[in-house]
């Protein structure tokens, strides 16, 4: 059984139907990139997966457990699904280590010493161990985003959602964040990314999902999808970004 099972997901904002029935299964350890034009529903879909948005219809299961519709408390959710945002959203008044320790200590009730150990491990993983006492305002965008990844990982989630995590970065800082994601993928972390980094989608992900008008329009392994798109919408999209 797949780790994440999404069934017939529908979501509207007022009269605007953003998701029109999404079905998707994701295996443990799989790296899935979701691509598509803005407004295609890809970010909304991602935000439904950790219930930042509540969908109107359909179900989401994670490791055979129902995740949506209030079946999981916010605390449980955060230990199953982590999320990294486009704009980092670090807490400006907390140092790097405090940012990473906050949720384990407050939500998971981990003893501080243990939480600090885990936080240091995660910061080491993203190469930010030496900036442990800095405030977010003292860091570059790429460094902030790496801390944000460590913060999500500290809850030891089964899946990590990445919502355009390099879109707000200066071009020269994109590489360091993608490098971290690549090493997470190599470790077997399940990643679901909404991304505009086509090279990354092609090189690192196991599967690419192309969303169009609230549907999964086409999906498959990156090589085939990028070189032999089946639908005209996807070939137009690829042509427009390359």
């Amino acid at each position: 059984m797949a780790l994440v099972v999404v069934n017939d997901l529908h979501k509207s904002f007022g009269d605007l139907e953003v998701l029109k029935g999404i079905d998707l299964e994701i295996e443990a350890g799989e790296v899935v990139s979701i691509i598509g034009r803005s407004g295609s529903g890809k970010s909304t879909f991602l935000r439904c997966l950790n219930q930042l948005e509540h969908h109107d219809w359909g179900t989401i299961h994670l490791a055979d457990q129902r995740l949506d519709g209030g079946a999981m408390s916010p605390g449980e959710l955060s230990q199953n699904v982590g999320m990294v945002f486009q704009s980092f959203n670090l807490f400006p008044h907390k140092t790097v280590i405090e940012n990473v320790m906050l949720a384990p200590v407050v939500v998971k009730q981990t003893p501080r010493a243990e939480a600090r150990q885990v936080a240091e491990q995660m910061l080491d993983k993203v190469g930010m161990l030496e900036k442990i006492d800095a405030y977010p305002g003292q860091l570059s965008g790429g460094q902030q985003q790496r801390v944000a990844i460590a913060r999500a990982l500290a809850m030891q989630p089964k899946v990590l959602l990445c919502d355009e995590v390099t879109s707000a970065l200066d071009p020269e800082l994109v590489g360091e964040v993608l490098h971290v994601l690549e090493s997470l993928a190599a470790e077997g972390m399940t990643l679901i990314l909404v991304t505009h980094e086509m090279k990354f989608a092609r090189d690192v992900s196991h599967r690419v999902v192309f969303m169009h008008h609230g549907h999964i329009h086409e999906a498959g392994d990156p090589q085939t999808l990028f070189t032999q798109p089946k639908t005209s919408e996807l070939s137009q999209f690829i042509a427009s970004i390359l």
Partner: peptide, 21 residues
């Protein structure tokens, strides 16, 4: 900022925890 609330929610903080921390 809206993103602060979203980050807190994604990390599992309750409304009171998010307000406080």
């Amino acid at each position: 900022a809206r993103g602060q609330h979203e980050a807190a929610r994604a990390l599992g903080l309750s409304r009171l925890q998010s307000f406080r921390h």
